[in-house]
Computed example of a mutant assay.
Amino acid sequence: MRDELAQVGARLRIVRRSRGWTLDELASRAGMSASTLSRLESGKRQASLELLLPLTRQLGIRVDDLISVDASDPRIHRPVIRRDGLVIAPLAPESSPVHTYKITYPPVAVLPELRVHDGYEWIYVLAGRLRLRLGDQDLTLTRGEAAEFDTRTPHAISAAGGKPAQVISIFNDDGVRMHTHAPEPQDP
């Protein structure tokens, strides 16, 4: 906690300067002396709620905005999913609002059946050639090309040619369930 408070003054200075205010202007608006604000910003005066509340009100920020939160490890540690010959590597935390995956499609002799499901998908080809059958369209995407589509349109995706295709895919919640979870057994 002490390290977090040590950075409050520097953050306060950054916000003040981003507003284009001088020490005198902010101090006057917050009802304190410019020397008190200067000592606070330079770390020579300890931050207290009594000092910070009038300053944050004037700056239009929260006290929390001045206190750093230790960043957790940003790396993604989720297992790779192997399903129907695909290799699906999660690129975002499970709790992320954006569901991003690196998917490797193996070469296949026959295009998979067209499927329809709720959802929306965006794909970007990293390597190889990707065949996208979307409704009546039969498209081949190459490295650097992207596509986005409503998955309620009948579609199928596979590698085109004899080599795997690697893509980055972004799904909404329905698309994630369809691509990363095993199908549920059908009732007889």
Rank of each mutant, 00 (worst) to 15 (best):
G135V: 11
D3K: 14
A156E: 11
R13C: 00
E50P: 02
L59D: 11
G161Q: 14
V125I: 14
Q166D: 14
H117K: 06
G31E: 06
G31H: 06
R57P: 01
A34I: 02
A27S: 10
A92S: 14
S72F: 00
T36Y: 08
R19Q: 15
Y101P: 02
L49S: 12
R45T: 15
I61Q: 10
G20W: 08
A27H: 03
P112S: 08
R115Q: 13
I61W: 13
S35N: 11
G144N: 12
D70T: 08
A146R: 09
D24E: 15
I14K: 09
G31M: 02
D84Q: 10
I61G: 08
I170D: 04
F149G: 00
R2T: 06
D187F: 00
I81G: 13
L111T: 15
L132N: 02
L86R: 03
P183L: 07
R39T: 03
A147G: 00
S38Y: 09
T104E: 14
A165C: 15
P164F: 01
W21C: 03
G31I: 05
I81M: 13
F171K: 06
R19K: 15
D73C: 01
H117N: 12
Q7H: 09
L55W: 04
R11S: 01
R39S: 08
P185F: 09
H181K: 11
D70A: 05
Q186C: 05
S68R: 03
R177M: 04
R2G: 01
A159L: 07
L141P: 03
S158T: 11
F171A: 08
R13F: 02
